[in-house]
Nucleic acid binder design. Structure first.
Lengths: 133, 133
DNA sequence: CTAAGCCTTGACGTTGACGTCAAAGGCAAA
DNA sequence: TTTGCCTTTGACGTCAACGTCAAGGCTTAG
């Protein structure tokens, strides 16, 4: 398949695909005239790349990881990199969950401004004491 | 406290603090000579801002959220924004968890290249059949 | 053969959260 | 008063993952 078809199937732009190749995380055959050709497996590969990007990993890291995915093994020092990124992801999740809880609080407070659950509302006395939900 | 002290206590750069003010998410008093002065509470405020940034929220969004945090209530349309961001965070967490699982697989495979758990290893026969963990 | 549509490389633009440097003024200790 | 560190505004730099435009070549239906 050529680049446009892959882009359509994987849900990314052709620019992105060329960028991935530039970064060494996606390879292609070439027709005699120089057009890129991809195997069907490239669709899954691109989706995997997208997933790693979504996890906050950069091109460099992904370029390190993908060969391990393919080979099924890795050098010890590379494994350390993998573990480090795994830890980063875990930490990111924790951060997100914490921020999510904070946001939930704000939403809860915003939706149901109940003074009972909101001590600091009394610090800024407004006309809310006359408001009845 | 002045900007340097706040930066130290909150663990960010002075540039970041000025940027926050520029974005309208952090306010300060000024000395007659124009230097910024912050209350002790600014430390927590900056940490909260950092947390929201870490959650992938942008300055604009944070500028929308913070007044709600302070006021303890919000307009219905703002609440929708909050919910939307909450959903984004939830989705991000799911993405991260999925990527984390993928990475775990890779690590597991890399650490213990056991053909039993790794069918595709046989597609690329190497000398691993003589390797003993 | 020719027009429409897909492809190529090259190169500059974008966005966000700052980094960094410059020139100047403020502040406290000696 | 001098020294040295802190602060100010302004403005340009950075980095990543692309977007976008340009000028031209390939491909295929008619």
């Amino acid at each position: 398949m050529r680049i446009g078809e892959l882009a359509g199937k994987a849900g990314v732009s052709t620019r992105a695909l060329r960028y991935y190749e530039e970064q060494g995380i996606l390879s292609s055959e070439r027709t005699p005239s120089g057009q890129r050709l991809y195997a069907d497996s490239a669709v899954d590969r691109v989706r995997l790349i997208q997933q790693f990007y979504a996890a906050g990993l950069g091109s460099r890291t992904i370029a390190t990881i993908l060969p391990c995915v393919d080979a099924g093994h890795a050098e010890p020092e590379v494994i350390e990199v993998l573990r480090a990124d795994r830890a980063r992801i875990t930490a990111s999740i924790a951060q997100l969950e914490e921020a999510g809880r904070k946001l939930d609080q704000v939403i809860e407070l915003a939706v149901r401004p109940d003074p009972e659950h909101c001590p600091h509302l009394r610090e800024h006395p407004t006309d809310r004491n006359r408001a009845s939900v």
